[in-house]
Design a protein around this nucleic acid. Structure first.
Length: 576
DNA sequence: CCTGTATGTCATCAA
DNA sequence: TATTGATGACATACA
């Protein structure tokens, strides 16, 4: 938000006195030559007298450049009442349709700026939904609402001490940001660059919307305009004004903070409503890491987990399965095979299984699996499962028996049910081979042996189950990864949302500052105007208005309001 | 005992 | 058509 910061400090507060005003204006020095019309800014009284009280042109250009918002919709009350009071015939020539043109002429293509503004507006519109509740409240706030109070307290506002500036500064400014935009685009003022983001998106409507702008109506309090105040029409809702409430801005900032820094319980409660629509996925930051770690480890540590679980399980289960299947002894070859089976049962990763197959060809490689090292010394799984089941291992003759028993138990625990079945059915090769060999090799292997139908059926089941087991593990891993990715996406989106909200708050803050600045400048300019008798003009009777040729006109409020009202109608007619 | 988690298994579909 | 992978559903073991 550097640009906003720059914009905010570039203007500073309204200056008092000509010197201060000049310095203030110098701060907004317009680098670009005057618009095509080149006419000097002038203050015109409808009577025709041309009273250039001061360099209004620059002042008002500054005003425009400083406040790219607002439209004639600002003060329907003033407009409507004044329109009724003043006949249109009294319009001074050149007042219509040329209120802004000088400021627009010579304007360079503002498309890129417009694009920026459009982007901003789209973001704000999207997010306006989220703050709608509070916004609506503020939109409909009565004239004496906190907002009006807030803005009536604008610093250095000599004219409107007792005036509520709610309408002037808020009512319409947020309604249409296009009001002053042309200046911003056309004037390469140092400060203008800081305002670029606020350039309106629709430059084509600038002339129409701006031409009728009644600056007095914008910035002078209804209290000063007796008739207008009484006949105030329905206020147009201000889509942004409500957002400017300081409390709400702070709230949003807090929410953003909460979002960015993770959701603790308190913050989560604050944001509960905000993120109610989130998916059922747990967004708890504390949850994510744990779930992530668990999932990450699900595959990599599957072997250890399975081994630990099986080891912790009672050996009775293994021995019972042995008793069920009641197979008999294995050859020494089958011992090695069993070792592999144990591996196959534990190793879930396909790579691991392949490695196990290699280890079959070179059993010494088993040593790389620490928990299988002592398996190599276990000779008990040569015994029939029934023998193991009955716990009648070699006669209780020596201490070795105990260790062998343990090893046998350990191995049994490593064996899957299919491995036990395979052993029971005297399947002459490892489950790992059964499962992982390619079809051709698998069929080749089967053809080498004379296998019974039951054995073949078991082998096929083992292969099917083994493959499905790995598939299930992969499937679960994928599922976890998907969930994790989704959670990450949600977090990213929440971060983006928080960032956008933060930007929105900054924009609104900047906007409010600019509104105050424009208001002060207007009052400064108006307050320096003097009539032929050297007396100041009454804000209740006169208003400043842009003319299309770049001049600034001092016109009766009634007339200005009438014009504003007329301009207000035009868009509606067009819509029809 | 209940509950949540991890894992294996089956059924099914699709490639 | 057989094989294989993916996945939902269920069962089981376990903490």
């Amino acid at each position: 938000m550097t640009r906003l910061d720059r914009s905010s400090h570039s203007g500073g507060g309204p200056a008092k006195g000509s010197r201060a005003l000049n310095s203030l204006l110098a701060g907004h020095r317009v680098a670009q030559p005057l618009s095509a019309s080149g006419s000097r800014a002038s203050v015109q009284v409808p009577g025709g007298e041309d009273q250039t009280a001061l360099s209004l042109e620059e002042c008002l250009r500054l005003l425009e450049a400083t406040c790219p918002f607002g439209e004639n919709a600002e003060f329907p009350a003033d407009i409507s009442s004044l329109t009724e009071a003043v006949p249109s015939e009294s319009e001074p020539p050149g007042l219509q349709n040329n209120l802004l043109s000088p400021l627009l002429t010579g304007t360079e293509s503002p498309f890129d700026l417009e694009q920026q503004w459009q982007d901003l507006m789209s973001i704000m519109e999207m997010q306006a939904m989220e703050v709608n509740t509070s916004s609506e409240i503020l939109y409909n706030a009565p004239p004496g609402d906190p907002l009006s109070t807030n803005y009536s307290l604008a610093p250095n506002t000599p004219i409107n001490q007792n005036v509520s500036l709610h309408q002037a500064s808020l009512g319409g400014c947020s309604q249409d940001f296009s009001l002053f935009s042309p200046e911003v685009e056309s004037l390469p003022v140092a400060s203008s660059s800081t305002l670029l983001p606020l350039v309106p998106s629709n430059s084509t409507t600038l002339n129409s919307t701006f031409s009728s702008t009644n600056l007095a109506g914008l910035f002078f309090p209804p209290q000063l305009n007796g008739t207008a105040n009484d006949t105030a029409g329905p206020e147009l809702p201000d889509p942004l004004g409500g957002l400017l409430d300081e409390a709400m801005l702070d709230e949003i900032s807090l929410m953003d903070l909460a979002i960015e820094e993770g959701f603790n319980s308190v913050q989560a409660s604050q944001l509960e409503e905000e993120f109610d629509s989130d998916s059922g996925l747990s967004l708890d930051s504390s949850h994510s890491p744990s779930s992530l770690s668990s999932s990450e480890g699900s595959s990599s540590s599957s072997s250890s987990s399975s081994s630990s679980s099986s080891s912790s399980s009672a050996s009775s289960s293994a021995s019972s399965s042995f008793s069920e299947e009641g197979a008999v002894g294995y050859s020494s070859d089958s011992e090695t095979l069993d070792l592999e089976e144990a591996e196959g049962a534990v190793g879930y990763q396909p790579e691991y299984s392949k490695f196990c197959r290699m280890s079959y060809q070179d059993p010494s490689q088993l040593s790389c699996l620490p928990y299988l090292e002592h398996v190599g010394h276990n000779h008990t799984y040569n015994m029939a499962p029934s023998a193991l089941d009955s716990a009648d291992l070699p006669p209780p003759s020596s201490l070795k028996k105990g260790s062998k028993e343990k090893q046998a138990d350990f191995l049994d625990k490593q064996m899957s049910r299919d491995e036990h079945r395979a052993r029971a059915m005297k399947i002459p090769f490892t489950n790992d081979k059964i499962i992982n060999l390619p079809v051709e090799e698998f069929n080749e292997l089967l053809s080498k042996y004379q296998l019974s139908e039951a054995q073949l059926s078991l082998i096929r089941d083992i292969r099917r189950r083994g493959k499905n087991k790995m598939a299930a593990q992969n499937c679960r891993k994928r599922k976890l990864d998907t969930i994790l990715n989704l959670e990450r996406d949600v977090e990213d989106l929440q971060r983006d949302k928080a960032r956008l909200l933060r930007e929105k708050v900054e924009f609104l803050r900047s906007l409010r500052q600019m509104k105050q600045k424009v208001q002060s400048l207007y009052q400064e300019v108006f307050g320096r105007l003097r009539d032929e008798n050297g007396r100041p003009y009454s804000p209740s009777q006169y208003a400043l208005q842009y003319a299309g040729d770049g001049s600034v006109l001092l016109i009766p409020r009634t007339l200005a309001d009438q014009q504003a009202r007329r301009q207000e109608r035009k868009p509606k007619d067009r819509r029809k």
